[in-house]
Amino acid sequence: MQSYNTHVKRIVLLLAIMALVGYGAKKVLTPSTFGEYGHYRGAAIEKEANRPLKHMTNYSCKSCHAFEWEIHEYGKHKTISCEFCHGPYANHVKDGKYVGRLPVKKGLEIKTLCIRCHNKEIKARPKDVIKTIKMPDHLKSQHVREDHICNQCHHVHAPLRYINRAKKVLGLLTGKEAGNEGR
């Protein structure tokens, strides 16, 4: 039964079986949505689109924190996201339920946070975008003690709120600013 080319026949058979098994495996193992839009799993797009949100928008805070929201929304700091200083929404409310307390900055933390943006020493900050100050020169020029924390004069959510109100009382506000209610 053995002929001069038995082993060659068997090898060819083995290779054919291997190729068939490989082809079958490729068919069976290729993910179902692969190639739906291109050379990838189409399902991966929806998976990424359905990633749970951690940050929301400032509106998400409004219904519970209407008072703070109102001050913030009409103040000079309205472009700052609530969640940047206080942390992401998802750490606070999940599925409509309260899950954790978000941090509120206090004392020197506030000063650090203010200086993060308003430090004049960092010369790269464009003047028409942000008002910068130098510490402690700013405190000196305002004739207050050098250990003053920023929020002793500036409302953190609307920095000119108290200042403009005081100016209004003293009759220092003019024109447009006066109509602004000192926000």
Partner: peptide, 8 residues
């Protein structure tokens, strides 16, 4: 989120 939080 980076666009949303950018204050500038």
């Amino acid at each position: 989120v980076c666009v949303h939080v950018c204050p500038a």
